[in-house]
Design a protein around this nucleic acid. Structure first.
Lengths: 267, 267
DNA sequence: ATATTGTATACGGTATACAAAATATATGCA
DNA sequence: TGCATATATTTTGTATACCGTATACAATAT
């Protein structure tokens, strides 16, 4: 049963005289018309070079994702495709494509013949995500130290330079820096698959959605300590610090769950 | 700028008198008409309760995924949507939806206005996936031992019961058992997010695609040792064994990369 | 007053139609 | 014959139409 589409091997891709010559097809696309939420969509974390540029699909994907992560579309809320498509100025087809992707990312749930609703990221899920991050980021720190060039280390040491415990700073900017900091390690540890896994599962973004878990005064010192240990290429110390850093935030979320569980019991 | 679709909160879901009463919407759907590749699509690993039952989309998703993982659709090959849709007996719309999902899973790459091609999973990627699996599965083993009930342990100890080093056995069946074994730990360690991450990233399936890396005679003993250690609830030992088990396979793939790299240099 | 059934409407899922783009083919010219 | 340009064909991406199902609401029965 030889299927006839098996014959259509792609041999002519990347030919000269196309607008894709000599470039990776993973290149990102720019849709300047959309104004991004800087925090949630900082270049490092979600230019989503995973995705291709089905222009309107990409537009819808980004916009809807932004709406979900910024709580403009609320958990449990049903997304009425006609209305949302109208609002975005596109037809339902690309919107539905975008929703398929968001469903694969688990940000949205499709119920057959009912529609698509926004998923809720429970605190329990946040704890679970933290456990995954701890496992993966510790691995990333280890590998990063092993393979990082001096140049990479130097660039890494620039993180949080502009933040000072003395004078107050914008917490949104701080959170953005936090995201970039963690992503830098992930993206430079020599494991491309890891980067993709983080993007696919929104491991960083999902947690960021609930805002800062601990005050910068606390985490800034930890970040600095991690930077120091990595600069010294002290693997055991860096891994321990990174683990502790995430573990502490996770613990706070666990405490919150505990508190709310007790409150429920006591009425 | 209050958007009008914000008002359409889904409140009436799960009403009685519908055919969805009292049931989770995550329930799986059965499309008996499709014959699955048992190995690649064993119930445990990919009934994909993540996905909703857009019936034809789901059908296309499964079928195309199976075709990719079984090498019926080969890496680099272009998927001509018209032809494939015709072959599957559906229109391009649900096929395209399926391809969107597969792209999010990175099994396929979409190039704007050119088409969709099947991605190649390089040996280098396999190594990267192994690193992620080592980090995550060690965490899973630890948590599984901590929370597993006696019943779960007992069920777990049944794995590989029917395999004997003395008499030969079907390697496909063995690989299937291997997949189930690893998935059992992942799915019972109390971290639902982890399960999803494995499904989303195809962490187990991608590696299985290249077939058995080491002979069962070797891995069977390791599997048994892990089972033993978990049965004893010996966390350090179990984690060490699990890590070693994966690390050994990873090492073989790394050696293969090395060999091929040398062969290339020497012509 | 409450429950039940029937009907209207809204909405989701799929197929199809159409336009834009890319690839393949043909034509003309050196 | 070989290359450049023009034309035809294929194929993708988007919009829209259609159909079936789910929900809402009203009318009727209990």
């Amino acid at each position: 049963m030889a299927m006839h589409y098996l014959e259509c091997i792609a041999i002519s891709f990347g030919k000269p005289n196309t607008n894709c010559e000599n470039s990776s097809y993973n290149e990102e696309i720019n849709l300047n018309s959309i104004s991004f939420n800087k925090l949630l969509f900082s270049k490092e974390i979600s230019e989503m070079n995973i995705l291709s540029a089905n222009e309107l699909t990409t537009l819808a994907y980004r916009k809807v994702k932004e709406m979900i992560l910024s709580d403009e579309l609320k958990p449990g809320q049903k997304i009425v495709q006609d209305k949302l498509a109208l609002d975005l100025g596109i037809s339902r087809t690309p919107l539905r494509s975008a929703l398929q992707i968001l469903e694969a990312e688990h940000l949205v749930q499709s119920i057959p013949r009912r529609g698509v609703i926004v998923r809720k990221i429970s605190d329990q899920k946040i704890v679970e995500i933290y456990d995954c991050r701890i496992a993966l980021e510790c691995m990333a720190v280890r590998n990063f130290i092993e393979i990082a060039t001096e140049k990479q280390i130097l660039k890494f040491q620039k993180f949080f330079k502009n933040f000072d415990t003395e004078k107050p700073f914008d917490s949104k900017t701080y959170q953005e820096e936090d995201i970039k900091f963690h992503n830098y390690i992930i993206e430079n540890c020599g494991n491309e698959f890891l980067t993709r896994l983080f993007q696919q599962g929104n491991l960083v973004l999902c947690i960021s959605q609930i805002g800062l878990i601990r005050p910068p005064s606390e985490t800034l010192l930890e970040h600095r300590a991690i930077i120091q240990a990595i600069g010294d290429r002290d693997i055991p110390k860096a891994v321990a610090l990174a683990e502790d850093h995430l573990e502490k935030s996770k613990f706070l979320v666990m405490e919150k769950i505990e508190r709310e569980s007790l409150r429920k019991q006591n009425g």
